[in-house]
Simulated assay, not measured.
Amino acid sequence: MRTSLGAALAAVLLSAAPATAAGEDGGFAIEDPRVTESSGLAASRAHPGVYWTHNDQDRPRVFAVDSRTGKTVATVTFRGVGTPRDMEAISVGADGNVYVGDIGDNLDGSWDHVWIYRFPEPERLRDQTVEATQYTVRYADGPRNAEALMVHPTTGRVYIASKHEDGGGLYEGPARLSAGGPNVFRRIGEVPWVTDGAFSPDGDELVLRGYFSARAYAWKDGRLGAEKRLSAPIQRQSESVTYTVDGSALMYGSEGTNSEVARVPVEGARPAPSGGGSAAPGTSGATPGPPGGSGDGGGGGGNTTVGVLVLAGAGALVLLWRRGRRRG
């Protein structure tokens, strides 16, 4: 009887566990003890399965983390820039460059300017120092705190979402950043409290997350469109989000030592062919939360299915146990 119960339990647990197909990026924990404030997350375009992250107040450096192991496979230090103040975001552009947003301002307006650093994504993953370009950023309506920087995958335009308890703004940078003078970012939309954001690989959707929720916005002609709430994992300190490079899932990150990165599949997405850097046309988006819900799910829409399977399995095991007792 114990053997039967054990086999049945194993079958239930195996059927309930969310599967990750071969070649897909799964959730992972960042093992590097140097990464204690993982504030930004971006999928590498040059190295599938690798994610770039960084600390808040640190030296000018970023870490390349292998999603299969959680281990750092490269530490890239960039020179040619000043001392970072509060690096909060990272994004990889279609131009093959990594953009780091030194855009935090916890005093909500103590800096009259912030910075963006840009450097080419390395062809080889190894510890190295690279030359970077530093861009000065000012906001048309005055200084503010921000934690989200997104590079559009088609136009290459840079956007910043400010962070405020009463709601923030979405800011659009110039068509091309200039290293020769201030780059003025102008407010083009209203957004909620935002800790990070990411464009879908096809550029048709913008995802913004906060501490307790995430939202997706249709993106057309450079402006926010229809909004929908997403199921996002509850994390220790919800700080980052990025799409997988094929657009099949969203990866949600948190701060703290050994912080976890959770994978939430994108509903209806068809992964791009192997080696492709974008989702299939018209398949952007993410798993929506329940209609009218808060979007504050604890680990993505798949958890509901898992819970139902586990409850059903538990009921089956109780019936087996009762029948066994009668026969005994």
Rank of each mutant, 00 (worst) to 15 (best):
S278H: 11
H113T: 11
R45C: 04
P60V: 09
P48E: 07
E190S: 15
V100S: 03
G173Y: 01
D32S: 09
I103Q: 02
S238H: 13
V158A: 14
F78I: 11
G142P: 04
G313F: 01
G197N: 05
L41F: 06
V184M: 03
A272C: 15
A7Q: 14
Y252D: 10
S110W: 02
H47P: 09
K163P: 09
R223D: 00
D166G: 15
G292Q: 08
N55A: 06
G169N: 05
V245A: 14
R323N: 12
W219D: 07
G26E: 09
G96F: 06
R209D: 01
G276N: 09
G282S: 07
P290Q: 08
G293W: 05
A21K: 14
L309I: 15
V308H: 14
P290F: 12
R263N: 04
S110E: 12
R157F: 12
G167L: 09
M87N: 11
V308W: 15
Y117M: 06
F78C: 10
L224N: 03
L41C: 08
F185E: 10
A312T: 14
P201D: 12
V266F: 03
G328D: 14
A43M: 04
L149K: 05
F28S: 03
G282E: 07
D56L: 08
L177G: 00
L149H: 09
G256Y: 06
A316E: 02
A140P: 02
D25I: 04
D25H: 10
R79W: 11
D56E: 01
A43F: 06
G167V: 07
F28W: 08
A16M: 12
A314R: 05
H152C: 11
Y217E: 01
D296Q: 14
E24H: 02
V241D: 00
A279M: 11
R322Q: 13
P120F: 05
D202A: 01
E260Q: 14
G26S: 13
F185A: 08
D56N: 09
P291C: 07
D221V: 07
A286V: 11
R124D: 12
A262I: 15
V65H: 01
G80E: 00
T72P: 03
S91T: 15
S278W: 10
G324L: 02
W52G: 07
P60Q: 05
S248L: 02
